[in-house]
Simulated scan of single mutants.
Amino acid sequence: MRAAVYRRFGPADVVSVEEIPTPAPGPQEVLIRVLASTVSAADHRARSHDVPKGLGLLAGAGLGFFRPRRRVLGMDAAGVVAAVGEKVTRFAPGDEVIAMLGAKFGGHAEYARIGQDGPITAKPAGLGFDESVALVFGGITARVFLNRADIQPGARVLVNGASGAVGTAAVQLAKNLGAHVTAVCAARNAALVTDLGADRVIDYQSSDFTTGSDTYDVIMDCVGNASFDRVQRLITPGGALLAVITDLTGLLRARSRTRRSGKLVSASGVDYRAEDLRFLVGLAEQGKLRPVIDRSYDLDEIVAAHRFVDAGHKRGSVVLRIAGSG
């Protein structure tokens, strides 16, 4: 099969398209013929080994220290089931599915495999494969973090980094919960996040929300620059900081800060589940969750796709078309 492969850490051009063996599904596994994946911020971090301060050793254990442990990136996939293991009962060849491959990666290839009990489900009816895969990485991450806070109708939620893959999903999911949503992003993305449901937009290039006087029940940081020390005074009693991206200090001190402040500080990783994907699919089919795609690239354009993501200004998702999708 054809796949985007990288054999050393570095800039975008360390990735190239190669022919590698097609994986075979194990007894409990599903083999997906991948039609679309995304090139995410996580792919950028894995390829470049650009990780938050202090997390080099932890990242190395998962990604590899001197060379990549997993040579095909891509944390998500949308496609058609090509084959199933002998003990698989939940899926059959021909099923159209989406899947979150997570830290195992593998989506930037013509075929990827995942356990039938993993985060895989039927793709949304009425959406193409490109649109469907654009819901996965950002949507499941945003849902898991938002579920850690008790967001009631009328709650004030701020999303820092509201125009990225996770941020655009978080704005919509928080709005679906009845929250008043403040989106922090560049001015050029104000119309986008407003259209997604944001009630208020703060342009981070002209205003630092951490120096303001407004308070929030939940602050969701999708950028990594809103540490608890910077934002704790902005969080209401019993509120939460959801740190999607944080450094080693933020990770290690999350529990003690929660205990001492009475405000939830959540910085742990994401447990990807099929039920969360099914929830996202349901919202999408009801028109309550829209995929946001900045641009799409074919597999042969993988270097250009990585370079665009490296620039750090993408809106929503960057889709990688593995084969003809739509």
Rank of each mutant, 00 (worst) to 15 (best):
Asn147Thr: 05
Leu158Thr: 05
Asn160Gly: 08
Ile151Gly: 04
Asn147Glu: 15
Gln152Pro: 00
Thr215Cys: 12
Ile151Tyr: 09
Gly197His: 02
Leu146Glu: 13
Leu158Arg: 02
Arg188Val: 13
Gly167Asp: 03
Gly164His: 12
Gln205Tyr: 02
Gly164Thr: 12
Leu177Arg: 15
Thr215Tyr: 06
Thr210Leu: 09
Leu146Pro: 12
Gly167Leu: 09
Val201Cys: 09
Val181Arg: 09
Asp203Val: 07
Ala174Trp: 04
Gly167Arg: 09
Ala187Met: 02
Gln205Val: 00
Gln152Asn: 00
Ala155Met: 06
Ile151Phe: 10
Ala162Gln: 05
Ala169Gln: 14
Ala191Ser: 14
Thr210Cys: 12
Ala179His: 06
Gln152Asp: 01
Gly197Pro: 04
Asp199Met: 10
Asn176Pro: 00
Ala198Ser: 06
Asp199Val: 06
Ala165Asp: 07
Val181Lys: 07
Val193Cys: 10
Ala187Trp: 02
Asp203Phe: 12
Asp217Tyr: 06
Tyr216Phe: 15
Asp195Thr: 11
Ile202Gln: 05
Cys185Leu: 04
Asp217Ile: 06
Leu173Val: 02
Gly197Asp: 08
Ile151Pro: 00
Gly164Leu: 11
Tyr204Lys: 03
Asp195Phe: 01
Leu177Phe: 08
Asp203Arg: 00
Arg148Cys: 00
Val159Thr: 02
Asn189Lys: 07
Leu173Asn: 08
Ser207Ile: 01
Asp208Gly: 09
Ala183Cys: 10
Pro153Cys: 11
Leu177Tyr: 08
Ala165Met: 07
Asp208Val: 11
Leu146Asp: 09
Asp214Ser: 13
Val171Ile: 13
Ala174Cys: 03
Thr215His: 10
Val193Ile: 10
Asp208Tyr: 06
Ile151Arg: 04
Ala179Cys: 01
Gln152Ile: 11
Ala198Lys: 03
Ala190Thr: 08
Cys185Ala: 12
Pro153Gln: 09
Asn160Thr: 04
Tyr204Pro: 05
Gly212Lys: 06
Arg156Asp: 12
Lys175Thr: 12
Thr210Phe: 04
Thr194Pro: 00
Thr168Ile: 11
Asn147Gln: 15
Val171Cys: 10
Val193Ser: 01
Leu196Glu: 08
Arg200Pro: 00
Arg200Ser: 12
Ser207Met: 05
Ile202Pro: 07
Ser206Ala: 14
Val184Phe: 09
Thr215Gln: 14
Val193Tyr: 08
Arg148Asp: 01
Leu158Pro: 01
Arg188Leu: 08
Gly164Val: 13
Asn160Arg: 09
Thr210Met: 11
Thr194Asp: 10
Val159Met: 06
Arg200Ile: 00
Phe209Val: 14
